[in-house]
Amino acid sequence: MKPTRLLLTLAAAAISMAATASDVEISSAQELHIDRQAYHPVLSPDGSMLLFSTTDHTGLYSYDVATGKTFTLDESAAAGFAPVFSQKGDKVYYQTATLVDGLLNRDVRVVTLRTGKVKQLSGPSRKNVELRALDGETFVSSAVYHINVVRDGVTTELSPVEDGHSYLWPTLSPDGTRILFSEPFQGVFVCNLDGSGVKKIADKGDFPGWISNDAVVTVSTVDDGYNIMSSNLILIEINSGETSPLTPEAVKVGELSVCAATGDMVYSTLDGKLFLMNVKINR
């Protein structure tokens, strides 16, 4: 095994990492000062724009990472649940929810970030809608009980884990060759696009995201069945299986979004703050 060197630049906490195959540079967490409580961060493909919402996904807001300016995109219920950037990053597709006679209905909308103009693409419906950003290549998404892999317009359903119950937060690796996902009963996995090569990389983890082709970050939580008691960011090197905490014990992480292109990650805390960190993996 190669010797390891871990560079902690501006490290706020004593983050230790055991022997790994790479040099890892981790910046300290910088709070993004936003004039409201913010949750559910979603970084744009180039990391320049950040979407966030309220605890229960009511409202969709943008935050320009360079300028620190915040814009209200939509104040509707559920608007902040799993919004999808267009590949250019100039538009955001999302759904909103309404209760019609007690039943949940969702529409589909798109907002142009430059103008803030919102357009409804389809009206409220009881149908399940899956938003996919396609660039003619590959896209993965969760249909809860399986993963949809779209390649060249062809959708393949994957259930890569034996006895798997559901598949949450699937994402494509930066090189487009592997899928990272969470099976809530069995752990965090990576697999090839055809479902082969399944490898478990953690026993549990929420909101996993690629930080490079060889490393991922996930949120590891401990709860008592009612409330989250602790919740931290964990860096996992896929090949070695080595893990390292990225946040101090006292921090209670809510949700996480990772931009592999820049190595940026943004996480929310349970008390509604957003923090930006950067991780660089040097080969």
Binding site: N105, N128, A133, L134
Partner: peptide, 17 residues
């Protein structure tokens, strides 16, 4: 060319009243 498509999944086709 990059584009976004919306796929309506007929997971649950309900007639809502």
């Amino acid at each position: 060319m990059k584009k976004l498509i919306i796929i309506l999944m007929a997971v649950l086709s309900v007639s809502f009243a």
